[in-house]
Amino acid sequence: MIEIDNVSKWYGDFNVLKHCTTSVTKGEVVVVCGPSGSGKSTLIKTVNGLEEFQEGDIRVDGTALKDKSTNLPKLRSRVGMVFQHFELFPHLKITENLCLGQMKVLGRDRETAMKKATALLERVGLEAHAHKFPGQLSGGQQQRVAIARALCMDPIVMLFDEPTSALDPEMVNEVLDVMVELAREGMTMMVVTHEMGFARKVANRVIFMDRGEIVEDATKDDFFGKPRSERAQQFLSKILTH
């Protein structure tokens, strides 16, 4: 589904991604973790072309990002993305947030879009808030709306960029619950997160990044049981002691 092939990226002289290679197959849930500044957010943003990269290539469902003839907006419309800071459109009501992409990008009529939006709002448990503005919702609710907005586009894969990092602790679980349910339904997911509980519960594989490199790319059991690299061991011991 996603093939990341020897991707490198520089910000000026600074090498943010160094020869990253990995893949996500259909139905797989891959968690990407690592210390801050390790390049994990940058990596996930290269997958739908929000971040450019200088070397290597990425293929999403067979479409190569570096191919000049690739229609990036079209590719992005098939890849759902959830951001750290939700990024709902504050000037539009919740329903409009959910319908806009469906109508303007996928060309659905309002009725079809509305039906889909309502169904997905129900699914994330927020149908009562349909006619509010994003600013009237709590962080956790906004993030659930953001997940629903991405799902409205019927994505073939979902990318999550630290979806719970900007949330108050008591709201983390309501968002993780939605993601766990999504994973169990078989959605292909690539998730950048520090929530190791989530990784243990639903991840198939865990990728550990440090200083722009993929240091460890292992099955969940291997990663938590016997991480090979010293850096991953250190990272795990730091975040799992509490």
Partner: peptide, 14 residues
């Protein structure tokens, strides 16, 4: 905020 155009792009908007 920069995230707004990013979110629009992520939905497939040109």
């Amino acid at each position: 905020p920069r995230g707004q155009p990013a979110a629009a792009a992520a939905l497939g908007m040109n």
